[in-house]
Design a protein around this nucleic acid. Structure first.
Length: 203
DNA sequence: TGCCAGGCCCTCTTTAGGGCCTT
């Protein structure tokens, strides 16, 4: 069955490091499911990676070994999360990072996500070419989106990414016939050379 | 043994190098 183009799941992983190929594991997953531009459901779980997190990660995320001690295993949480995302389209800020961890953690439980993953950072680099940089926090500030929590926690970052995503949908709304095709349009934008962005938006 | 990301994108480019972005 084809995924519903009106529905996207925007997700964010906190991890023990930068690369699952170097043994790093997920320690938290946060996600929101958006239907027709409205957040309908949230998912947030800490998970025990079976190894301690170092002081850098504890300071960066605020997630401590004490917090992870009683958390369910990565395998248990990722099974629940696989059910949550189903075959919906996915979005993340710097999606290549989150996709590597999603694929690696799902592979450990013999699950697989075969749907489409879009990157809000690649789209933002094209739509907001005048932003100071394209870090999530900078873009949120650039767009004057109210900040009500702490960055570098999975659910909050996924909520902020969803606000960025909706703002970008709004910005191109005048160039798109409906929200239903916005996901594919933004995917095209993410792969369009910057010089060609204006032409693509004009249709 | 020792070290270790990786994809995107720009430019002083394409037979390459380095910054950005994620934890």
């Amino acid at each position: 069955m084809m995924p519903n183009a009106d529905t996207v799941v925007i997700l964010d992983f906190e991890t023990t490091g930068l690369s699952p190929d170097c043994g790093d594991r997920a320690i938290e997953i946060g996600a929101v499911r958006i239907e027709k531009g409205v957040i309908k459901e949230r998912f947030q779980k800490l998970m025990n990676p079976g190894r301690p997190v170092d002081s850098f990660i504890a300071n960066y995320t605020g997630i401590t070994n004490a917090m992870l001690k009683g958390a369910p295993s990565c395998e248990e949480v990722m099974g629940e999360f696989a059910d949550f995302i189903g075959d919906h389209n996915l979005v993340a800020h710097n999606a290549s990072f989150d996709k590597r961890f999603l694929d690696a953690e799902l592979a450990r439980i013999s699950r697989h996500y075969a749907g489409t993953f879009a990157c809000s950072m690649l789209v933002a680099r094209r739509i907001y070419q005048d932003a100071p940089n394209h870090q999530l926090g900078t873009l949120i500030d650039h767009l004057n989106i109210p900040v009500k929590g702490d960055f570098h926690r999975a659910l909050y970052d996924s909520e902020m990414t969803s606000q960025l995503w909706l703002a970008m949908l709004e910005k191109i709304a005048g160039h798109s016939s409906s929200r239903a095709i916005s996901f594919s349009l933004l995917q095209k934008l993410a792969k369009t050379p910057k010089k060609g962005v204006a032409k693509l938006l004009k249709g």
